[in-house]
Nucleic acid binder design. Structure first.
Length: 401
RNA sequence: GUGGGCGUAGCGUAGCGGUUAACGCGCCAGGUUGUGGCCCUGGAGACCGAGGGUUCAAAUCCCUCCGUCCACCCCA
């Protein structure tokens, strides 16, 4: 039998691995989170910005750090037809800083407060709360170095969680120093680890070379004693960093925000300086981080801009929604139609579509029945839709107008 | 990248070697009804993830692949 004789069925496609369709029944959750995010950001004076979902690859490759997992194995890289090397954005900050520079926002009153909501992409193995395309709310306060802003963005995220009805979470906080004090600390850390290299895991040997700070958050059992005995970063902080952290803590205290200091907390992206923080749900499990961020005072310079401090965070919609469901928060349902119009004859159908338009103009949410169905089917449909009222147009109603 | 679980109608499941693959929900049609819901009847819908193998016989056993979920890692 030749292939011409057996017509092959068209292939059925599924959404690509690690992506998901957001179906109508999930939309109330998305709307709930999005509305709350916009409301809270605006209440803090943040203005919305949206950047393209892809950028010149260098925007991310140069900023996140070549040894970071994001750059090393998770970025979607592609060359377009004009031979430009582009990257689907894996995170939200570097591209917003690119826009800050490109549009001369340094000449606006500082700090510039920005927020954005959109998809990010990372090639990673999917699991609960982890997707190759996920949606983040990002918030950035750019152009001022005071710890007031560190506290402000943390407060903003706390406020959002409260607004969403999420009560069970912990704020982890740390400071990882800056260009002044971190090099000395890194030297001390290397000196400490050098004789231990034969005992630690392969990843740690790599970290030793490329990103020593991350030695601190190795989860391998065999490395734990090394981690425990490592010199403490907090002992090496310069006066400016120590003072910044103290000020941040004073602001947080004033705001009554409780947190735990976790000296092991180190972020996966290289551009962070001083403040780093993560929000964790109490219920441990897959998606351990509900939101995280920190200060990135050198980032704008890395992208060719003037020295510009900044602080911000990202929080994932999918994970927020998982926790909203887990904590039993109820969200407003999609509104049911106020009017359902049933019709019994072809002539009545004509009248029905006209009535539908008129009713919508009057502000009702209206569903007109599909043609050719029995009245029983139409009424059943009206009921399934939860319509408040049903109008029925039959021969009599047509005749009487 | 590493490990484990699972893939049977749109969804949730049963069947785990023997003839037309079952049930619930949903969908469609009809009956009943004071036009819906409830109840009753009927119907459509599955080459049992894909390919190969074992067997007289495979959804059922074996192998490979793919997908998916969960965990590690990483992170939102």
């Amino acid at each position: 039998m030749t292939s011409a004789e057996q017509p092959s069925k068209p292939r059925k496609f599924a959404a690509p691995r690690g992506t998901a369709d957001i179906l109508p029944e999930d939309w109330p959750y998305w709307k709930y989170v999005r509305d709350a995010a916009e409301r809270v950001c605006e209440s803090f004076g943040y203005r919305r910005i949206e950047t393209p979902i892809f950028e010149h690859a260098g925007v991310f490759l140069r900023t996140s750090g070549e040894s970071s997992d994001i750059v090393a194995k998770e970025v979607y890289l592609f060359e377009d037809r004009g031979h430009d090397m582009l990257a689907l954005r894996p995170e939200g900050t570097a591209n917003v800083m690119r826009a800050y520079i490109e549009h001369g926002m340094a000449s606006l009153p500082q700090p510039v407060r920005l927020f954005y909501i959109g998809p990010n992409f990372r090639y990673d193995r999917p699991q609960a709360g982890r997707y190759r395309q996920h949606t983040q709310l990002g918030v950035e306060a750019v152009g001022d170095a005071d710890a007031l802003l560190d506290a402000e963005v943390i407060d903003l995220l706390v406020t959002l969680f409260r607004e969403l009805g999420l009560s069970e979470f912990t704020v982890k906080l740390n400071t990882i120093g800056d260009q002044t004090c971190r090099p000395a600390y890194v030297d001390a850390l290397r000196s400490y680890y050098r004789p231990l290299l034969s005992q630690v895991c392969d990843d740690c040997r790599m970290r030793f070379e490329k990103n020593p700070l991350r030695l601190l958050d190795c989860k391998e059992q065999r490395c734990q004693s090394a981690v425990a005995g490592a010199p403490r970063l907090h002992g090496h902080l310069c006066d400016a960093c120590r003072e910044h952290f103290a000020r941040l803590r004073a602001y947080l205290a004033a705001l009554d925000i409780t947190y735990v200091i976790d000296e092991q907390l180190v972020r996966g992206i290289d551009y962070y300086t001083r403040t780093v923080f993560e929000f964790h749900p109490h219920e441990e499990g897959a998606q351990s981080s509900l939101g995280s961020g920190g200060r990135y005072d050198g980032l704008v310079e890395l992208l060719g801009g003037p020295p510009t401090p900044g602080v911000g965070f990202g929080t994932g919609f999918e994970r927020l929604i998982i926790n909203i469901k887990r904590q039993g928060v109820s969200v407003p349902p999609t509104p049911a139609p106020s009017l359902y119009i049933a019709h019994l004859t072809p002539g009545a159908a004509l009248a029905a579509v006209k009535l539908g338009r008129a009713a919508r103009l009057a502000g009702l949410q209206v569903v007109v029945a599909a043609a050719g169905r029995s009245l029983k089917a139409q009424m059943r449909h009206a009921d399934a839709k939860g319509a408040a009222f049903a109008a029925i147009i039959g021969a009599d109603e047509l005749a009487s107008g």
